[in-house]
């Protein structure tokens, strides 16, 4: 059976979009060690920032630029007010970030209403690619994801800050006694990861319907991508995103969307079980 090239392009787009969302999560999970259940709502906040900026008449690009800043600030506050206070209670962190997610989502409902909104892509229309028309904005998001991947790799492996961050990931205590301001690094990483989520939200907003539930839809795939990712770096996240996002869109094309979601979730449960077991074995 010949495989439609557009299908592969769709799978690639899905994987890259998921990478954009998951990379922020990977930063906070890798460095701060916190499973942030509010990550989907940070994405939501990014999308609604873009919406609010567009409604204010400033256009889409201003929203895309502003979203990471606004959401980065939100993440900074989340770290300062909630996560910092629960360092010794990891299960409570989970619960508290879930509560924070609820608060952000319901604030959005209170401000913008429960209905869904649409944002027009800044460059409408499509170009012919591999013999079929393909939406320009989707290509734009794919390019942005690649840019973020390059930026993350550069930041982590080619700068002094990246060296410090990798040191803190490898051994928090040793990094602290070596004179690194680990807490400040963590606060920075958390705000940065949140900013990436905000960027992802604003970037993907024109591709989706912007509604209060969109964060939840992204949270689980992004988590699965991060948790099944081999290693913590951008490369691992990319592999995880390719497995989860690409797999889902391929199964959706050949079978049905509902079945695809179920298959990916079930597959991830099995995979995750093995990964979690391996991690536990390493810690012992």
């Amino acid at each position: 059976m010949p495989v439609d090239p557009v299908l592969l392009l769709d799978a690639l787009a899905q994987a890259l979009t998921l990478f954009l969302v998951a990379s922020g999560l990977a930063v906070t999970f890798g460095l701060v060690g916190v499973i942030n259940l509010a990550h989907g709502e940070l994405l939501l906040a990014g999308a609604y920032t873009a919406l609010a900026v567009e409604r204010a008449g400033l256009g889409y690009w201003a929203g895309l630029a502003l979203a990471p800043l606004v959401v980065g600030l939100l993440g900074f506050l989340l770290d300062l007010l909630v996560i910092r206070r629960l360092r010794e209670r990891p299960l409570d962190t989970l619960l508290a970030t879930w509560a924070a997610a609820l608060v952000v989502r319901q604030t959005v409902v209170a401000l913008f209403g429960p209905a869904s909104h649409t944002i027009q892509p800044p460059i409408p229309g499509s170009v012919v690619l591999l013999g079929a028309p393909y939406p320009v904005h989707r290509l734009l998001v794919m390019g942005l994801a690649l840019l973020v991947a390059a930026l993350l790799a550069w930041l982590l492996f080619a700068t002094r800050l990246g060296l410090m961050i990798r040191g803190a990931i490898a051994d928090r205590t040793l990094a602290a006694v070596s004179g690194l301001a680990v807490r400040r690094l963590e606060a920075l990483a958390f705000a940065f990861g949140a900013g990436l989520a905000g960027l992802a939200g604003a970037a993907t907003a024109p591709l989706l319907s912007v509604d209060p539930q969109m964060g939840l839809g992204f949270l689980l795939p992004a988590f699965l991508a991060v948790l099944v990712a081999p290693g913590g770096g951008p490369a691992g996240t990319a592999i995880g995103a390719a497995l989860v996002g690409g797999g889902e869109s391929l199964v959706a094309a050949f079978a049905s969307p509902v079945l695809a979601q179920l298959a990916v979730l079930a597959g991830a449960v099995v995979l995750l079980r093995r990964v979690a077991g391996r991690r536990a074995g390493r810690e012992r």
Partner: peptide, 15 residues
């Protein structure tokens, strides 16, 4: 083999 910490909680979320 599955640690009962955060990974377990996320798995229940998925279920």
């Amino acid at each position: 083999r599955v640690p009962t910490g955060p990974a377990w909680a996320v798995l229940t979320l998925v279920l």
